[in-house]
Write a protein that binds this DNA or RNA. Structure first.
Lengths: 236, 236
DNA sequence: CGACCGGTTGATGACGATCAATCTAAGTGG
DNA sequence: CCACTTAGATTGATCGTCATCAACCGGTCG
């Protein structure tokens, strides 16, 4: 959260309290399963995770990829049963904390509650972008948008990442995120390569023409263009 | 918000302050256009609205339908430019209020800020349901899910609504919400009718077999099953 | 009355799913 | 160290869902 505003000491210690405990997760581990009860939330400290739902025909829709610094399970916390599954895509570290700790922050730190709302809204807008992508854009555009989104989110925690990055996903996972089959994802990646927009090799992707890619994908980086000057003042 | 918790007098008056002003909107009117700046938020008092985005090929994706009691423009408030357009589907009344008024509430009423977050998360989960629908379900299921969602949200403000209700949308609008063409929406409605799941007539739809419809649509009512016992206590 | 909007129906075609086979690289056990 | 297994990537052939194009109908409004 320190990236959006300058935190006070009081706010910083309140947030650090959420990260007191740590729990490691193996690649593939499920942190929380759809329809299970859960009184905890989490902060992702390291690694890449995803949230998804399974439909009753067995197909999977990946809803979101989760990166270090993201708060996990907010939506599960307000329901008796979790609406989505949280699973690790790589070895991860998470910090669990109680719902009461979030309540405490909302009581004592108005600006932090505002920031929780802000992140929730950023996520909401990113979801609507993907909704529009699934509803109204071609398979190629959806894959291109996913590549751009992944690269930008990875770069947020690792500034050394430029145009080359490790995908960290199987083509089946890309398909489950974009509403396509693994076979068609493969063809789309190949087409993007043939168009000169990307190059691929040994699990790595290079964005060769980021601008053209963003145009083809209708992509907007939703972590930019914020206006937070109006947030409530910190109490301490 | 009073439907989720018992509000204190202090909370109630704080919320009433948001509804001091009123602005009527004609059917078709645009309250806020994508990429425009906006320092205001709104509460929808009466009528049906929608939010949508236009893609550069001219196609439209409807992101969400808005019902009385909904807070509008939260996502626009945190960006310099609105990420989506807000438009009236029927004659409406909205109450505009300043971003500062929201900040004030977050400073003085921790439980109300928690409830704003809760509504934001309910909306988020509803969006992920639609994301999964667009990514992984058939045209028929998507239309069925939209019918159920509309009926349930309409009933929340008008308890007299049972299984018959006025759609209030053109088939083109249904298509823009479900990622289909108007022509195909028409065929899906006809198929649902042939299957005995609905009947139609003069702008009205009757859900003949709500249970089978919900099963065909993978539908979950996200305004139920909440667990809010852990929210912060009201300060006044 | 004519124009227009929205709904309805038919004919055709494209995009992406499905099924199937092959290939490669990374393990794993003997 | 090598045979064997396995997960994932790749490619081809075929099929189905939904888009597109086009025509027509009915109601409403200027």
């Amino acid at each position: 959260m320190g990236e959006l505003v300058d935190l006070t000491d009081g706010e910083r210690t309140a947030l650090e309290k959420l990260e007191e405990r740590q729990r490691p997760l193996r690649r593939g581990a499920v942190l929380l399963r759809e329809n299970e009860a859960c009184n905890e939330l989490f902060v992702l400290r390291k690694g890449l995770m995803m949230s998804y739902v399974l439909l009753d025909d067995g197909s999977r829709q990946i809803l979101r990829f989760l990166f270090p610094g993201d708060m996990l399970g907010v939506s599960s916390a307000i329901y008796r049963e979790a609406p989505e599954t949280l699973a690790a895509l790589s070895d991860c570290v998470v910090s669990p904390f109680d719902r009461a700790a979030l309540a405490e922050i909302m009581r004592e730190h108005p600006r932090l509650s505002a920031l929780v709302l802000v992140y929730s809204q950023i996520e909401r807008v990113a979801l609507t972008d993907r909704l529009a992508a699934l509803g109204r854009t071609s398979a190629k555009a959806r894959v291109a948008a996913l590549l751009l989104e992944l690269r930008n989110r990875l770069r947020a925690t690792d500034r050394s990442i430029a145009n080359v990055f490790a995908l960290g996903l199987t083509q089946e996972e890309v398909g489950d995120a974009t509403g396509l089959t693994a076979v068609h994802v493969n063809r789309m990646l190949r087409q993007l390569a043939e168009d000169g927009l990307i190059t691929r090799g040994s699990g790595r992707v290079t964005l060769e023409d980021e601008h053209a890619l963003a145009r083809a994908a209708n992509y907007v980086n939703r972590y930019e263009g914020l206006d937070l000057g109006w947030l409530p003042q910190p109490r301490s």
